[in-house]
Amino acid sequence: MSDTDTELHDPHGLADADLPLERASYEALVTAVLAWKEPNLTPRDYEQIVLQLTGHARAVAADVQRHADALPKNDGRGALAEVILREAAGRLSQPIEGTARCAQNRARLVRGLYTRLGRLTEPAPATT
């Protein structure tokens, strides 16, 4: 951690608790960020947006993990979720930059995690 990073103190694990996500507001943020053509924000503004999207991506990833863990072992959706979660972990481990590109990458990650979450919460496909 650098001198400017802050670590969340969460001894009871409430940050990853099964709390409802503020999905609509984050989906609106994702849509806005992905619609940027030539934004003119300061690096600090980009960093704040990236931090918001990063925190939300972690929360959605935790939700994806909980749903994947609840699936039967022979349900392929769980295996695909694990692949998506590994990819998300790799992308979240990348340093935060105060750029539009970094914000848009995090927005794409949030969108992808919500897509996976939606597929995990749908009824299982019928087998023949």
Score class of each variant (00 low, 15 high):
Glu7Cys: 11
Pro11Gly: 04
Thr54Gly: 14
Leu71Gly: 03
Leu113Pro: 05
Glu38Leu: 13
Ala124Trp: 00
Ala17Val: 01
Arg58Phe: 00
Gln65Ala: 14
Thr128Lys: 10
Asn74Trp: 05
Thr99Phe: 00
Leu109Tyr: 02
Tyr114Asp: 04
His12Tyr: 06
Glu87Leu: 09
Gly112Pro: 04
His67Val: 06
Thr115Leu: 07
Gln48Asn: 13
Leu21Tyr: 04
Gln48Met: 12
Met1Asn: 03
Pro125Met: 06
Val83Arg: 14
Ile49Thr: 15
Ala70Met: 01
His9Ser: 13
Pro20Gln: 13
Leu80Ser: 06
Pro72Phe: 01
His56Asp: 14
Leu71Met: 10
Leu19Cys: 07
Thr6Gln: 15
Asp45Gln: 14
Pro72Val: 04
Thr31Ser: 15
Val110Phe: 04
Asp3Ser: 11
Gly90Lys: 06
Ala107Tyr: 07
Ala124Arg: 13
Ile84Gln: 09
His67Gln: 12
Ala62Asp: 00
Ala68Asp: 09
Thr128Arg: 15
Gln104Tyr: 01
Ala81Thr: 04
Arg108Pro: 01
Ile84Lys: 10
Tyr26Phe: 15
Ala81Val: 08
Thr128Trp: 07
Ala61Leu: 03
Pro72Trp: 04
Leu117Val: 00
Thr42Ser: 13
Ala81Leu: 07
Pro95Arg: 05
Tyr26Ser: 08
Pro11Glu: 00
Asp18Ile: 04
Leu51Arg: 14
Gly76Phe: 02
Arg86Pro: 02
Asp5Val: 05
Ala62Met: 06
Val64Tyr: 01
Ala107Lys: 06
Val30Pro: 03
Leu85Cys: 02
Tyr114Val: 01
Asn105Val: 06
Thr4Pro: 03
Gly76His: 04
Leu19Gly: 03
Ala68Thr: 09
Arg116Pro: 00
Gly112Lys: 11
Tyr46Arg: 12
Leu21Val: 07
Thr128Gly: 14
Asp45Trp: 00
Asp10Glu: 04
Arg44Gln: 14
Asp63Cys: 11
Leu109Asn: 02
Ala17Met: 04
Asp63Phe: 05
Val30Met: 03
Ala88Arg: 03
Leu41Cys: 02
Gly76Cys: 02
Gly13Thr: 00
His12Gln: 10
Gly118Thr: 00
Gly118Asn: 07
Ala107Trp: 05
Leu41Thr: 02
Leu53Thr: 01
Ala24Phe: 08
Pro72Ala: 08
Glu47Met: 12
Leu34Arg: 13
Lys73Arg: 10
Pro39Gly: 11
Lys73Asn: 01
Ala59Phe: 03
Thr128Val: 11
Leu109Met: 06
Ala32Arg: 14
Lys73Ile: 05
Glu97Trp: 02
Gly112Gln: 08
Val33Gly: 01
Gln48Ile: 06
Gly76Ile: 05
Tyr114Ala: 01
Tyr46Asn: 13
Ala17Asn: 00
Leu14Asn: 07
Ala35Gln: 13
Pro20Leu: 11
Leu14Trp: 11
Ala62Phe: 03
Arg101Phe: 13
Asp63Arg: 15
Gln48Cys: 07
Asp3Leu: 14
